[in-house]
């Protein structure tokens, strides 16, 4: 590096594309030694949840046999999740439908609310996605035991494999099971983080380039915001599908 580089870097405005992932605690609360502070992350969780409720409230304010536009959309969302649950889990998945429904719409609205300028993307917090994924995988594990008892350990013994290979296969199965919450959490977190980081970097180019060059990254951000909406949908969908797959595994083994 030449000596001029740090000088140029210091002269340019200091920028941080990861800044909008910072969690800022607005109010510090402590309940029995547990940190229950209200931060921007928590606030946007509530906003997303409120938007879910508002959407369904408006859609089904006065439900009709022949649905209007918003009601059609709400029904499409309902039937979409019902279709996923019925396809993957089947009849035994009915009791879990409200959970999966809530999970999908919570994550979807967190993803989409994160695209509002100045907002906070809750699902870009690894700890939030990890909480959900651990809840899901932990629940599927416990439910598997509840359904099958110690028989559930067979889950880690692949069928149709010679006994000689068992010492190799069983650890692989266990590792792949343990990798489930990690991959589930990291997939959502990394998608959201990467998308928003990309947008932030492009916006930095918009403000640092002169006007005749700025339109290129600006146009890119416009297109990429559309892609981000799509990714928000896809990731919520994937998260839901994998949840259904894990619950199905614990019900029907494999």
């Amino acid at each position: 590096m030449t000596a001029t580089a740090p000088v140029v870097a210091a002269a340019a405005p200091k920028m941080d594309p990861l800044h909008h992932f910072h969690v800022t605690k607005y109010l510090d609360f402590d309940y029995l030694g547990i940190d229950v502070a209200i931060s921007n992350s928590v606030l946007w969780m509530w906003i997303a949840a409120g938007l879910v409720l508002l959407f369904f409230h408006l859609a089904f304010k006065n439900p009709r046999i022949v649905p209007g536009r918003l009601q059609s959309l709400g029904e499409a969302g309902y039937l979409f999740i019902r279709g996923i649950v019925d396809d993957i889990v089947g009849e035994k998945g009915r009791p879990f439908f409200p959970y999966i429904f809530t999970l999908f719409f919570f994550i979807l609205f967190c993803n989409l609310a994160g695209l509002i300028p100045g907002s906070f993307t809750v699902t870009s917090q690894l700890i939030v996605t990890a909480t959900f994924s651990l809840m899901i995988v932990g629940f599927s594990f416990v439910y598997g035991f509840y359904m099958h008892g110690t028989h559930y350990f067979k889950f880690f013994v692949p069928s149709g494999v010679p006994v000689l290979l068992m010492p190799l296969m069983i650890p692989i199965e266990i590792i792949s099971f343990l990798a489930r919450p990690v991959s589930l959490a990291v997939r959502l977190f990394a998608n959201m983080t990467a998308g928003h980081t990309m947008l932030a970097v492009m916006f930095l180019y918009v403000v640092t380039l002169p006007w005749w060059g700025a339109w290129l990254p600006f146009g890119f951000t416009v297109i990429f915001t559309g892609v981000e909406i799509f990714i928000g949908f896809i990731q919520a969908y994937i998260f839901t599908i994998l949840t259904c797959v894990y619950i199905n595994d614990s019900i029907h083994m494999h």
């Binding site: 229950v36 209200i38 928590v42 969780m45 949840a49 959970y99 999970l103 919570f106 700890i127 959900f132």
Partner: peptide
Amino acid sequence: QHQIVWSIASFFVLL
């Protein structure tokens, strides 16, 4: 910590 607590709480309240 507060995010874990609040995401679980928010999820179940929404549920």
